[in-house]
Design a protein around this nucleic acid. Structure first.
Length: 679
RNA sequence: GGCGAGGUAGCUCAGUUGGUUAGAGCGCCGGAUUCAUAACCCGGAGGUCAGGAGUUCAAAUCUCCUUCUCGCUACCA
């Protein structure tokens, strides 16, 4: 392993299209911040890099909807996010943005360099094109019926209702969001990163940590899920991946034929780490290349699990292909944080937003930091509940840590007017306490270096537990009546423990530690006898039931009025005219068989009253073919025909779905003539 | 369907290369105490380590099967 001279620590660039929630913080930014504070506490040379990811079709689309400019959207969100980070105590060395001139220049040059080297391939494909607006439509600009969950209003890259990622050409009944018209397919040319060419070295690098035979990192230090997912991708064979898009908001493709095209997020966003580093270096009289091109530098990416492939495969390819850059020595990805028994969902507003927490619990950022670290999803998905938050704050921060500090400081004022007493001869108990502090400190150090933040924090709290036990065992408040000299030693040790706490908790609870150091009136690892400390002040306040109930209430407010809380929100209003375009009829299933090349599909022939046609339907997991022959169902007649796994399907059988994803036919309650309209 | 990660006490989670009686914190019950924010301290109850089979002197740990959760991926209503 290399000996690190400096560290480049990145945290995933938040998308400037909305605020941050607790899942983002627990999964990425908080562990990154703790790690950085830990390194800086050791005097290491660290660049902590983050910034807003401000490009992409979602932002232009939203700008259009809100009748404003993309720049305005990203300016607003950039400020909100940046401020929330700052208020929460996430201390980036720079929080940059990808809409900056420097980033555009950097990303552009990067692309040019790789293009000159022949690192890309160019391919022509068919994309949707809006004839009225005379432009290609990014995936995000096409909406239609989701082919997976059949909800309308799905975007060309993703359906927000069911969360599946899509290709625009998969959408049923696609519509341009610019003109509202049906787009046409037209040829366009794009640049691709041929990831397939990089399989060999990637595999070795992921599995052994070696690059060109040189050990770069120890794979045993990488989290299982990171290596697992990367290997899974590599073993399944990598495909060329498009790195440009037809769009006008982003970094222009800087080579011939690039007009009207921008770099896609895969390429654009991670280079944002580099351009941010450049800006930081310029502002601080540093050389940015030391942080990206020097093999004595450790590059570490903090991300959530949705970003693993991106940082474990795609970005390393780009970096290696460029030639001078180092590869990450670790990608400590976290799993997901659930909330009150359910997945966090922005569209359902099932989330605790950071900026709202900071308003509702003003001055209590360390309480949240502590709880989120306690339940950090380091090895598996974990869960945040408000009751648990309250319990951890009250039973651990208040009762163990805050209480120990308070009783030590109060006793010091009571017995010695706030002056640290001179210790006498230390006996075994005192020595043991001091020794345990030292060994615990090194354990914490080790855990942090291995990205085990939850573990490290527990050990830090153990020092406070030790302090409480030390006082309880030795009972200075009794001894003061019989052995004043001994009490001086005891109180000195108690204050030494307090002082140690102000340092071991620093990466986790920075604000509290500042307060503690100011109470102790000391900013040194050593706390000398004769030193005057300040008046006692409570480090934490209890969280009352009312505050917690209010949060739970707030969270559930959006769903409480619905008989089915999981039901999707109503779609946008349509006119009767819109409705009459849809032709739904009663039809009877004549034949049904399993689709030969698919698990979930049945191939049906149905009598629609006006014809007999083939329909492919994804119901194989819910109905046996032989059971549904003769069944009367509802069919969407005038849906554009589409080949589904090799068989042309004309129309769509309508199904009702429950929360568990079970499907049921929508059938007339008594036999009706085939071809009868449903309206 | 393929692949990956998981399933350990009521809750949140640890369990190194298989090795005595499976751990911690919180919660619960009991005790002790009063310097301290009814806090702290001590003790106790509570687990068929998802289920089954196998390898072994020995399995939470290794192998296989089943099952459930999450993610990626693939044909999808």
């Amino acid at each position: 392993m290399k000996e690190a001279k400096r560290y480049t620590i990145t945290a995933a660039l938040p998308y400037a299209n909305g605020p941050l929630h607790l899942g983002h913080i627990a999964g990425c930014y908080l562990p990154a911040d703790i790690y950085v504070r830990y390194l800086k506490g050791k005097g290491e040379d660290v660049a902590f890099i983050c910034g807003s990811d401000e490009h992409g079709a979602a932002i232009t689309l939203r700008a259009k909807k809100e009748n404003t400019t993309p720049q305005h959207i990203v300016d607003t969100n950039h400020e909100i996010i940046k401020n929330a980070f700052h208020d929460f105590g996430i201390q980036f060395d720079i929080y940059h943005r990808t809409s900056s001139k420097l980033h555009h220049e950097t990303a552009s040059q990067f692309f040019k360099d790789l293009n000159d080297k022949g690192s890309f391939i160019q391919e022509t494909s068919e994309q949707f094109y809006d004839q009225e607006h005379e432009q290609f439509l990014a995936d995000r600009y096409v909406t239609g019926t989701c082919p997976k969950c059949s909800s309308e209003g799905a975007y060309g890259d993703q359906c927000e209702k069911c969360g599946s990622s899509l290709n625009a050409t998969d959408l049923i009944n696609p519509k341009s969001t610019l003109s509202g018209k049906t787009p046409v397919l037209k040829e366009t040319s794009h640049w691709y990163l041929p990831m397939n060419k990089h399989e060999e070295w990637l595999k070795e690098w992921i599995e052994t940590g070696k690059l060109n035979g040189v050990q770069q990192h120890d794979p045993n230090e990488w989290r299982k899920q990171v290596i697992g997912q990367c290997k899974s991708w590599i073993d399944n064979g990598l495909q060329p991946r498009s790195i440009t898009r037809d769009l006008d908001w982003g970094v222009q493709v800087p080579v011939e034929g690039g007009e009207g095209k921008v770099l896609y997020v895969w390429f654009d966003a991670p280079i944002g780490y580099i351009s941010a580093t450049k800006q930081w270096a310029a502002d601080n009289n540093k050389n940015w290349e030391d942080y990206w091109k020097n093999d004595k530098t450790e590059l570490i990416h903090f991300i959530g699990k949705d970003n693993i492939v991106f940082h474990g495969i795609i970005f390393p390819i780009i970096l290696k292909e460029q030639g001078d850059y180092i590869l990450p020595t670790n990608v400590p990805a976290n799993e997901f944080l659930n909330l009150e028994g359910d997945k966090i969902s922005t569209s359902r507003n099932w989330a605790v937003w950071l900026h709202e927490y900071l308003e509702d619990f003003s001055g209590r950022q360390d309480e949240l930091r502590y709880v989120l670290t306690s339940i950090a999803p380091e090895t598996k998905d974990s869960e945040f509940t408000w009751k648990d938050y309250q319990a951890r704050v009250n039973n651990e921060l208040v009762a163990i840590l805050g209480n120990f500090i308070n009783r030590s400081v109060v006793l010091t004022h009571k017995y010695y007017n706030g002056i640290v007493p001179e210790p006498g001869q230390l006996n075994e108990v005192d020595q043991t306490a001091l020794t345990i502090i030292e060994t615990t400190k090194s354990k914490i150090d080790k855990s942090l270096s291995e990205f085990k933040f939850r573990d490290a924090q527990v050990q830090a709290m153990d020092i406070a537990r030790l302090g409480n036990k030390y006082l309880a065992d030795l009972e200075p408040w009794k001894l003061i009546k019989t052995d004043e000299e001994r009490v001086k030693t005891i109180m000195n040790i108690a204050l030494q423990i307090s002082n140690a706490l102000s340092f071991v908790f620093d990466p986790f609870l920075p604000k509290t530690c500042n307060k503690l150091r100011s109470i102790l009136n000391n900013n040194s690892l050593e706390l000398k006898a004769g030193h005057q400390i300040n008046a006692a002040e409570l480090l934490f306040q209890k969280i009352e039931d009312e505050a917690i109930d209010a949060q739970i209430e707030k969270l559930k407010a959006t769903t409480v009025k619905q008989s089915n809380p999981k039901a999707k929100p109503m779609k946008d209003e349509i006119t009767f005219d819109d409705f009459t375009k849809i032709d739904i009829r009663t039809a009877t299933i004549l034949t049904a068989e399993k689709h030969p090349d698919a698990d979930k599909l049945l191939k049906l022939t149905v009598d629609t009253g006006i014809d007999v046609r083939t329909v492919v339907s994804g119901i194989a997991e819910h109905y046996n073919p032989e059971d549904i022959i003769g069944k009367q169902v509802s069919i969407l007649m005038n849906l554009a025909p589409r080949k589904i796994r090799g068989i042309e399907s004309k129309g769509m059988i309508l199904m009702a779905e429950n929360n568990e994803g079970e499907l049921s036919f929508v059938s007339p309650e008594k036999a009706m003539a085939n071809g009868g309209e449903i309206r």
